[in-house]
């Protein structure tokens, strides 16, 4: 009887394999994020390119980091806005500067939960961040090591190609 009441008020915890799966997801997420500085650089460049389509930004003071929280990992972007673009309609097609067009969106090793993207209120209370308007987006997915290896190769090819293009146009190649 007591057992019955116990189960009535405390539903059984989820099977431990579910807990294991969730812990594994988070642990790998943070492993992969801390493992790939190139990915972080590519993500930052893409992010700045997209945001600068809408507002003028000071990209030299932009900061993109990952924050490990209790139940997820989030991308935190702090990007100073210097002005507003004179345009009401968003551009139909992305026009990236030449250096950036080489960055393949597929090389990103993170998947984000776009639905729950929000302005991070905690960051907004922070004096510095509130001026910059920090955004926090939970990171929900992680790409397997095998997939990352393939993408690394692809990114390398793209980078080589873009360097060749830049040289053809008389521009200095990207580092």
């Amino acid at each position: 009887m007591l057992d019955f009441l116990k189960t009535l008020f405390n539903p059984p915890p989820p099977p431990s394999s579910t807990t294991a799966k969730e812990r594994l997801r988070l642990v790998l997420l943070s492993d992969h994020l801390s493992l790939s500085p190139e990915t972080l650089a590519a993500l930052k460049a893409d992010l700045l390119a997209v945001i600068s389509r809408y507002v003028e930004i000071d990209s030299s003071h932009a900061d993109v980091t990952f924050e490990h929280r209790e139940n997820d990992v989030a991308v935190l972007a702090s990007i100073p806005i210097t002005g507003v673009r004179e345009r009401t309609q968003p551009p139909a097609q992305a026009t990236l500067p030449l250096e950036m067009s080489a960055i393949d969106t597929e090389t990103h090793a993170v998947q984000i939960d776009a639905g729950s993207e929000s302005v991070d209120t905690q960051a907004m209370n922070d004096t510095n961040a509130s001026e910059n308007g920090a955004t926090s987006t939970p990171v929900t997915g992680v790409v397997s090591a095998a997939t990352r290896r393939r993408r690394r190769k692809k990114a390398q090819n793209l980078a080589n190609r873009s360097n060749a293009n830049a040289q053809q146009l008389g521009k200095p190649a990207q580092a």
Partner: peptide, 19 residues
């Protein structure tokens, strides 16, 4: 154990590793 939900399944493991 896999059947009882007490151990990661083959799919759980390889869903991550994808080998």
């Amino acid at each position: 154990l896999v059947k009882k939900g007490k151990m990661l399944s083959v799919d759980d493991v390889n869903g991550i590793l994808r080998l």
